[in-house]
Structures are given as C-alpha cells and as structure tokens.
C-alpha cells in the first residue's frame, strides 16, 4: 500500500476547493436548521456561520490531499456532499418548510 498515494494536484485541489465549499455550506446549513434555537435563532448566527464555513472549507481542502487519488477525492467528497445537501434540502423544504 505504501507509495500508493498519488499527487493528482489538480484533481485533488479542485475537489478540495469545490466540494470542500459545498460540504462547508451544507454542513453549516444543517447547523442552522438543527442547532440550538433552530432556523429562527437570532441573527447573530448568520455571521457565526461564515466563520464555521471557512473553518470546514479549510479543513476539507487541507486534508483532501490524503485521498489516494484525485478520483477518490471526488468520489468520497462528492458522496459526502450529496448526503449533506440531501439532508439540508430535506430540512429546508420538508421538515421546516
């Protein structure tokens, strides 16, 4: 297994930048719906969310190079995005519509 990791700069970096942002937005969106106070929480949440988004984005971007290849990064992060966005939109359009 050792030595199996491929650089795949563009594949991984694009996954980190694009899917990392998607994951940040959807996860923080879930916090907005499911966190304390729910979607009607006071407005302080909006500015807090930007910091949380930046944090998740940086973390995903930073660690996505640990995936074995660019394709693996896109596959795993894409799946995570799908699940997170599905949950977010379920909250937005169904549970808290």
């Amino acid at each position: 297994m050792a030595g199996d990791i491929r650089p795949d700069w563009w594949g991984k970096a694009s996954a980190g930048a694009i899917l990392g942002f998607g994951l940040a937005l959807s996860l923080v969106g879930l916090y907005a719906y499911l966190g304390p106070g729910g979607i009607d929480a006071p407005t302080g949440r909006y500015s807090l969310m930007r910091h949380l988004e930046a944090f998740v984005w940086i973390a995903v971007f930073g660690f996505c190079f640990l995936f074995r290849s660019g394709r693996a990064a896109w596959a795993w992060l894409g799946a995570a995005n799908l699940i997170a966005f599905a949950a977010l939109f379920a909250c937005r359009f169904y549970f808290f519509a």
Binding site: P36, A41, P42, G44, R45, L48, H51
Partner: peptide, 11 residues
Amino acid sequence: QDPDRRASTVF
C-alpha cells in the same frame, strides 16, 4: 448577547 452572536464576536 445571544450565544451565536457572542461566538461570532469572539471570532
């Protein structure tokens, strides 16, 4: 301040 506003102010 409410907790979210507090957290964001701390950042």
